[in-house]
Amino acid sequence: MIEVKDVGISFKRNRRSRRSFKDLFSSRARRARPDEFWALRHVSFKVTAGESIGVVGRNGQGKSTLLKLVAGVILADEGSVEVKAGTAPLIEITGGFVDDLSVRDNVYLTAGLHGMTRRQIDERFDDIIGFADIGNFLDTPYKHLSSGMKVRIAFSVITQLDEPILIVDEVLAVGDKAFREKCYRRIEEMLAQGRTLFFVSHNEKDLRRFCTRGLYLEGGLLALDSDIATVLDRYNADYGV
């Protein structure tokens, strides 16, 4: 389903924290060069259909970057990422929504951008809105919704996609307890259908609930690829949790 081969991706950062407009034209500024850091390097693994993968590691170790590579949001500088099926990405979940459009219009826009036809959206519209449970806010501008309501709409849209691979990046940290549990049940339903899951979370309980296999990232490297219990035990031992 997914094959990642010796993948690396680098980013630039400038050593100079502040530069004035004048600095742009000075010889000193021209001599300053951005340095490079590798968010991921030499990462390799394979995923078969129906696996549930939990990606573990401290903040800044490359977890979200890895998910974006698998989702096709960004491209690797080294190695290759081969994904043999479509993805339903819950990454930066409210990205793509337009503040001044109504909730209704945003549902059609976002679902359409993810490949759903107008007819499919019409058929699933009531299910999307019913799951989100946003009351009488359907024709309200999106920008007036609370952060929790925005997550409800986005989660409802993305989980209506028929793509075989579900990618989830910490989005369920927002929202009330009852709605989170509702989302968890939806994910479990999708897993029961044989979907493949890539899941980033700092919540150990959630990782154990959904995932059977873990990838432990440390310093942009794949430190361990094993069953989720072994990976979490190693992570906890490394950081005294």
Rank of each mutant, 00 (worst) to 15 (best):
M190P: 02
G112R: 13
Y142T: 03
G219K: 13
A178P: 11
L24T: 05
F45C: 12
T212A: 01
G95F: 00
A154Q: 12
G60P: 09
D100F: 08
E218S: 14
P89H: 06
R118D: 01
V174G: 08
V56L: 05
I91M: 10
F45D: 14
R31V: 07
I91G: 10
D105E: 13
D127T: 04
F131W: 01
E189V: 01
I129C: 08
E218W: 05
M190H: 09
G240M: 07
D35E: 15
R186N: 11
S27T: 00
I121Q: 00
G86H: 10
R234G: 00
R31I: 07
L109C: 12
F37K: 05
L75G: 02
L40E: 13
A39F: 03
E123G: 04
H202L: 02
F37T: 08
K84Y: 12
D77R: 03
I74K: 09
T87D: 08
G130M: 08
L191F: 07
D238R: 13
R28D: 02
D238K: 11
G60T: 10
V157Y: 02
Y142I: 05
G60F: 03
R213H: 11
S80L: 01
R124L: 11
V7N: 13
E188Y: 00
A49Q: 06
S20D: 14
L40T: 13
